[in-house]
Nucleic acid binder design. Structure first.
Length: 422
RNA sequence: GGAGAGGUGGCCGAGCGGUCGAAGGCGCUUGACUCGAAAUCAAGUGUGGGUUCGCCCACCGUGGGUUCGAAUCCCACCCUCUCCGCCA
């Protein structure tokens, strides 16, 4: 959520910066509603003040006397007025929320202009494309041939876009998650956190998925939501909290399954593991002081990159343009891994600085040493990495002519020493 | 799932219809005392909102209700604890 007061101070500036994302939002109604809200608060406060004055009079008045009766009648009207104004205020705030909660974050000044993926700026490239003396296959063909990826079984027991892993490939998923967590906790200073895979609607609102992207989520009949990413559970861990300055920065690494309905995503990546309703991911979350978030995004991106480097996978870092930025992000670096089977770079990690956008929604604050009032923290998140897509990358990059797949060295200790999946 | 107890400020804990944003204690901050520290004494110490920057208003798990008036009474929900049942 954006600061409405800030918007009111500079509507044109906000309109301009938000327009970089594509849609031009109507901010006038928002500003008008906020003004009305404030007027109603003043009205209500004045009425409540009158009420407490009358109440003071009643305390001392003779309960049988005429004075008491007069006060009581006065209180009756004031109470009715209070109720009326409060209802109006509630309705106004509901309207205000409806608008404010669906406004996306403002892109950082450094974000490149553009309207689509095609306008993203490649910042750096690591490693080189592997060469093959045969035609490299797509991961689904490799996995199926190895008997390790069973798409038909997934479709049977659950439905489309669910996959069953078997044998060495099932273990590969598990090995990757362990490898990633060990790297981040052992070398990058993260605390490992294992969270529930179900969260409540407040958490979804806190990180920005609700209300705008409600259709993308799987919801249970108990009113809980399957997490689309551990970003939700990890960031909301500190919802409605005031942190001590010494507690920052906070760095969490969490593994979860992630669930996405991919509503509207049908037709894209229908084959293979790229776009599933359920996948595993190791997520990295930072909570930092505002002046530290830019640096933290660089660090977080580096931590995600370290996984790809450790696995020897060729990738590039892309600075998302304004039009391609996610809802809550002010700046995002995507990591795109090279997939020989598709002859393309594909996203395997997305690292974002949300600044105070999520913190304002989720009320995550800290006691800044030089400030009287608690200040909003900045939140960041990034995949470190999407595990399923990492399996894809390994299958396609480490495949051999005979259909076997070499296990990257870093993973072998997690695979019981296995060197070749055949 | 059943029975019972309970949710109050950073923590503990009073409060049982008006004088309660809320006693008391702990913690923390500042000052006094001291060479310094401890002890002691004194003062301060929640969050959010509005503001004509004097102040004003709201918040006692959440949401409703009763009442002139609710932390206090009623209803629903959420959460915690104890016991029973079921279960990986």
């Amino acid at each position: 959520m954006l600061d409405i007061r800030e918007i009111g101070r500079d509507p044109e500036g906000f309109r301009h910066r938000l327009a970089r994302r594509g849609a031009v939002p109507g901010l006038d109604e928002l500003i008008e509603l906020d003004a009305r809200r404030r007027a109603l608060i003043q009205q209500g406060d004045a009425l409540r003040h009158a009420k407490s004055e009358a109440e003071k009079g009643m305390r001392t008045a003779d309960k049988q006397g005429a004075e008491f009766a007069a006060f009581r009648d006065q209180m009756r009207t004031v109470a009715a007025d209070i109720k009326r104004v409060a209802e109006e205020q509630k309705a106004t705030e509901a309207q205000l929320d409806e608008l404010a909660l669906v406004l996306p974050n403002v892109p950082d000044a450094a974000v490149p202009d553009g309207t689509s993926e095609a306008d993203n700026a490649v910042r750096r490239v690591w490693g080189e494309r592997p060469t093959f003396d045969f035609e490299p296959k797509a991961h689904w063909a490799i996995g199926e041939a190895l008997g390790g990826l069973d798409f038909a079984a997934g479709a049977k027991i659950t439905g489309a876009r669910f996959t069953v892993y078997r044998g060495a490939l099932a273990r590969l998923e598990r090995a990757l998650a362990s490898y990633m967590l060990d790297l981040h906790t052992g070398r990058h200073g993260y605390t490992e956190v294992l969270t529930p895979f179900l969260v409540n609607a407040d958490s979804m609102r806190g990180t920005g998925q609700f209300p705008k992207f409600r259709d993308d989520a799987f919801e249970t009949t108990d009113g809980l939501v399957l997490v689309p990413t551990a970003e939700v559970s990890l960031t909301n861990l500190h919802r409605d909290e005031i942190l001590e300055a010494e507690a920052l920065p906070i760095r969490y690494a969490g593994w979860t399954a992630c669930f996405r309905r991919e509503a509207g995503g049908y037709g894209r990546d229908t084959r293979g593991l790229i776009r599933q309703h359920q996948f595993q991911k190791v997520e990295l979350v930072h909570l930092v002081a505002p002046d530290a978030s830019e640096q933290a995004l660089e660090a977080l991106t580096g931590h995600a990159e370290a996984v790809l480097q450790g696995l020897g996978l060729h990738y590039r870092v892309v600075d998302l343009c304004a039009g391609d930025l996610g809802f809550g992000a002010a700046r995002t670096f995507d990591l795109e891994v090279w997939l020989p089977g598709q002859d393309a770079f594909r996203e395997i990690s997305s690292c974002s600085n949300c600044r105070d956008f999520q913190a304002r929604r989720a009320a995550i604050r800290y006691r800044a040493p030089d400030q009287k009032k608690p200040q909003l923290v900045h939140t960041l998140n990034g995949s470190g990495l999407a595990v399923g897509r990492t399996v894809v990358a390994i299958l396609e990059n480490y495949q051999r002519a005979d259909g076997s797949v070499v296990v990257p060295e870093a993973l072998r200790p997690y695979m019981g020493g296995l060197e070749i999946i055949a």
